[in-house]
């Protein structure tokens, strides 16, 4: 850890880990399945994004860096679509969000 990119990379990795922790906390603390989806789709994906960026800075060549970066959009697309699928199904099954009993729009 001597050069500037190394410091930036370390900072990004630590920040990423922080968002992962936030995602886990959200999953454990948020009141219902919809709110937990927020934790999963936003905090965890940002955590992975920062992690990927931090690791790409350490890559040996451009192609290797791009390969690591490629992971992020794939996970983003997957988790956005899966989150919608689960939220839609929960809504179909009549699961009410917390704090919203009986007042569906």
């Amino acid at each position: 850890m001597t050069t500037l990119p190394d410091w930036i990379s370390a900072g990004l990795l630590l920040a990423g880990a922080g968002f992962y922790l936030a995602g886990t906390l959200g999953l454990l603390r948020f009141p219902d399945v919809y709110a937990r989806l927020h934790a999963l789709t936003k905090a965890d994906n940002l955590g992975l994004g920062l992690l990927v960026l931090g690791l790409a800075l350490q890559a040996e060549n451009l192609a290797a860096a791009l390969k690591i970066l490629l992971v992020w959009p794939l996970v983003l697309a997957a988790s956005a679509a899966v989150s919608f699928a689960i939220a839609r199904r929960a809504h179909e099954l009549g699961i009410e969000p917390a704090g919203q009993e009986g007042k569906r729009p």
Binding site: A22, G26, P31, Y34, A35, K42, L46, G99, P105
Partner: peptide, 26 residues
Amino acid sequence: QSFKGGVQVAVRAFRPAMDLAPALVD
């Protein structure tokens, strides 16, 4: 925006008293 979104969820998840007002909106 996705950075903002991550920070927003993280702030709420870390805060001892979660300040949520969940709702369905059309």
